[in-house]
Structures are given as structure tokens and as C-alpha cells.
Design a protein around this nucleic acid. Structure first.
Lengths: 165, 165
DNA sequence: AGAATTGCTGTGCAACATGGTCAGTATTGT
DNA sequence: ACAATACTGACCATGTTGCACAGCAATTCT
């Protein structure tokens, strides 16, 4: 065995995930061909990663902008002490709220939301700040996204670390 | 036709996307069965949404925490005027930087990053703030995620809007 | 050392899904 | 009334899936 942390991804796992990232609709068979391993191996790896919770599935990736929700905004909320759960719940009820994190530091909650237009965004922000336990908010609009959500570099590093024996 | 905005998603599109969100590995045939339409119809809808850029694909969804990257942190960067591109480029070169947005408001760039441990996070943050054009930073650590990235509510609204004739 | 375990390979098989095409039908637009 | 568009239901050849099997190598246990 590798000896070190055991239940970590090895090079093959990482290469498989990279392959699937690039061409997600590949079947198990194609993957096995491209990776140069047997089909059963790929199947076993995918099962194992799924069991471990690493590979959660293959959800459709939607482009909100293409769906009409061209605006993204972020908000940092400061809330009344002990109201995190209550506020989170209310935020979760707003369709346009796509993500909420509780954070350390000045703000307490960090919110990502989308909207169709400036007017729509105004409405969404108003809805968010209308949550009673919210004391102070500071919002900003995303102008561009120099780095879109990605995991690839980490996978590549894993693949590089484990492979070059 | 619907009469209104034409190139919008209709109820069937939305229901298809919802279905795929719930069970992403469903084949075209299964989808057609569950939606009660012909296979060709599903195929046509998926092709159309793909052409329009709405449906970008089916990338594997990975759980970074399960992969060992249990910590997520956010940073707001204030940078020297006109250096956005330069800074973005440097940030993109850092593996642990998973997302960067340029924003309005006080901060200029908003960064999401991950790390394996506190020590690792320290290192990552140091790397980020070491970018020369960065003037001021404020980082916070994600303690929890009351609302994980989601699109579902928007799809459900679409499905509800178009369907109930 | 010898035995057992584990992981990968390569094969075979039946069941099923895929992409393609085609004709028939309803609905919408001119 | 005619053309265009969208959906249906069927067909086909091909490829893929899930499963089980035996052979092999490396590693770990006793």
C-alpha cells in the first residue's frame, strides 16, 4: 500500500475524475479505454468514490445567465446574535438566493443571489434585507468572473503527485 | 406558440431539468418515460438547451471536503487600480483558488478558496495576499453552509409558471 | 515461509439504451 | 387553405451496461 493516508485518492482516481470533468457523458467503457485500464477497474473506482462521498453525482450544469438570470450579486449580512438559523431559513425560502454561508469575521452570513435585471435585483435585495433579524447588509454586484468555479487544479495536482513514480 | 418571450424555457424544459437534477444519470429514454413524452422530444429539448448554452453538460460533482479539503475561506481583495487582470491571472495560478469574481463596491475581487487544514489555509491565504498588486484583504472562514449551491427553486418556479394552464 | 486477501485484467453474456430515420398527426402562423 | 413546426410511436444497427467468471500479481497476516 501507499503507507500514508489510506482512503485518499490515488493517481488513477484523479485521472478518472479529470477525464469525467472534461467529457462528463463518457461511459464507463470509454473511460477504461482512455485510461488504459480494465472496465471493471473504472467501475470499482467510481463505486468506491461514490461510497466515500467524493463523487456525488453528475448533475446538469446550467447557465443561469443563459436562462435569463444574468445578474449575480453578493451580500454580507450582519445579523442579531443567535439568529443564524432563523435567518438562514428565511433566506432559503427566497428562490433567487443560490447559496448561503455562515462565516467568521465581520459579517455573519454570506449570500449569493441572482436576478434577471436591475429592477429584479433590487427586488431580490429588498427581500433579503427585509428579513427582520438582519441588522446590516452590504451588497455588491458581480461584474465578471475571472475564475469560474473549478476543481480542476486540485485534481491535476493529485494526478501529478501520485502518478510520477 | 407561447406567444411571449420566445426562446425561454417552457414547463417541459423545466421539468426535464428538474428531473435531471434529481437523477442525473438518467438516460434520454428514462426521462421520456417519466415525463410522459416521446424520446425524440426529450432529445430535441436537450439538444436545444445545449445549443442555447443553458445546459452546459453533466460534470461530476465532487465533494471537496470528502477529498480532504475541508476548509473553505472567502477573501475580499482591494487591488491597485487597473490591475484586475494581472491579479486575476495570479490568483488563477493558485490551485486552491476555486472561484474569483470582480465586484462593485468596496472590495474589488472576491475569492473563494479551499484548504486541507488550518495550517494549509494559512499558507493559501499567504499566497493570495502575497500577490503584489493586492493592497488590502479581508478573509473569513466558512463555518457552515446553510444553503448549498442550488438552482432548483428557480427551476421549480419555471415549471410551475408554465405548466398550470 | 506459506496462506489469505485484495485489486486489476480480460472474457463472455443477456438486457437495455443510443442515435438515427421515417411516416403520421396536431397545432400554429401566413 | 397551405406551409412550417413540434410531438409521437415505430424501426434498426450498434454500443453500453451490469454481472459473473477465472487467472495473476502484489501485499498483508499468521
Amino acid at each position: 500500500m501507499a503507507g500514508a493516508g489510506e482512503d485518499a485518492l490515488d493517481g488513477l482516481d484523479a485521472r478518472l475524475l479529470l477525464l469525467l470533468s472534461d467529457e462528463p457523458r463518457l461511459g464507463v467503457l470509454e473511460c477504461s479505454r482512455r485510461l488504459g485500464v480494465a472496465r471493471g477497474t473504472v467501475q470499482a473506482r467510481m463505486d468506491r468514490m461514490a461510497r466515500r462521498g467524493i463523487l456525488r453525482g453528475f448533475p446538469p450544469e446550467l447557465d443561469l445567465a443563459a436562462m435569463g438570470y444574468g445578474l449575480t450579486a453578493f451580500a454580507v449580512l450582519e445579523i442579531s446574535q443567535g439568529q443564524r438559523a432563523a435567518v438562514s431559513e428565511r433566506l432559503a425560502a427566497i428562490d433567487e438566493v443560490c447559496e448561503v454561508h455562515a462565516t467568521t469575521g465581520q459579517g455573519d452570513l454570506f449570500v449569493r443571489m441572482v436576478a434577471r435585471s436591475n429592477a429584479d435585483l433590487q427586488r431580490v435585495i429588498d427581500t433579503v434585507v427585509a428579513v427582520p433579524e438582519v441588522r446590516r447588509t452590504s451588497t455588491s454586484i458581480a461584474l465578471s468572473t475571472p475564475v469560474a468555479p473549478r476543481v480542476r487544479p486540485l485534481l491535476e495536482r493529485l494526478a501529478a503527485e501520485s502518478a510520477p513514480e
